[in-house]
């Protein structure tokens, strides 16, 4: 499929002039951002060109094991992001195992559901569909799971006295943590709710914009966007709930204790 208006290198160079303009502004206003800006723009171009080459090769191969491998690498990178964001860390690489399980489960479930029902490419694991879909779901699941995990880990440390006061009065650990678990999941779901509310009114979602620019009929682009939003909402919910419940399990034990000894503060 060719886009209706192909882009040439000179087209991109003209757009790059805008980044140069940003750099000039940074120098003129003393923002001290021009170096960072140049590095970020350079990284973006390199990373995207690289992933373009990789995707082209993987699409041409159309080999299920290679597709799976690519998806797993993406999941691993996302899990690392989920694990790294909270200021509090669970011992025994808890953040990593929780990040990986939550992200993998939520992404695979929603992506496979979409590939086997709504999209149905043949075969359903065709990398041209599976990889971009897993990628966009992953990005949102990552965001939801890391926000939710960060919210829960921060809350148990902050609210330790409140949790233990309830335990000391004979409450079950589940009862004592319920409010914090709820608000952590809620925190994880806020971005996708905002995204859905603003879609089409405040923002034209990126996927849809890209498809329209590439020449697709707006109504077809809209249908794809709606499908994706539903997938992202489902994935975010699953990811946030999984991350929070897994973390809550690690932070408690069978004797209804709050195990903050399984948490270390700070980065590293």
């Amino acid at each position: 499929m060719k886009p209706s208006i192909p882009l040439s290198a000179s087209d991109l160079a003209i757009a790059a002039a805008l980044v140069v303009l940003d750099g000039a502004l940074s120098v003129a206003l003393g923002l001290g951002l021009h170096r960072q800006l140049a590095v970020a723009a350079g990284r973006m171009v390199l990373q995207l060109l690289l992933i373009g080459l990789v995707l082209r090769a993987v699409f041409a191969l159309a080999s299920p094991p290679v597709t799976l491998l690519v998806v797993l690498v993406m999941v691993a990178v996302a899990a690392r992001e989920v694990a790294a964001r909270p200021e509090q860390r669970l011992t025994n690489y808890g953040n990593y195992t929780i990040g990986a399980s939550a992200v993998a489960a939520a992404t695979l479930l929603t992506s496979i559901l979409a590939l086997t029902t709504a999209l149905r490419p043949s075969p359903w694991y065709d990398p041209r569909y599976a990889i971009p879909l897993a990628g966009i779901v992953l990005g949102n699941v990552l965001n939801a799971a890391s926000l939710a995990l960060d919210a829960l880990l921060g809350a148990v440390v902050r609210e330790r006295a409140a949790i233990e006061a309830q335990l000391a009065l004979g409450a079950a650990i589940g009862t004592s943590m319920r409010g914090l678990v709820r608000s952590a999941v809620r925190r994880g779901l806020l971005p996708i709710i905002n995204q859905m509310s603003a879609a089409g009114v405040v923002t034209l979602p990126g996927i849809m914009t890209g498809q329209i620019l590439a020449g697709l009929d707006p109504m077809e682009a809209v249908k794809y966007q709606i499908l994706l939003m539903f997938l992202l909402a489902g994935g975010s919910g699953l990811g946030a709930v999984a991350a929070v419940l897994l973390a809550a399990r690690r932070l408690t034990d069978a004797r209804h204790r709050l195990r903050l000894d399984r948490l270390v503060s700070g980065r590293g």
Binding site: R160, A161, A162, I163, A165, Q166, A168, L169, G170, G179
Partner: peptide, 20 residues
């Protein structure tokens, strides 16, 4: 004893009580 039952009968009042 299940832990909550034990804590109801052997009750701990912390120096800095928590409020939920």
């Amino acid at each position: 004893f299940p832990a909550p039952a034990w804590r109801r009968r052997v009750a701990y009042a912390a120096a800095e009580p928590g409020w939920w």
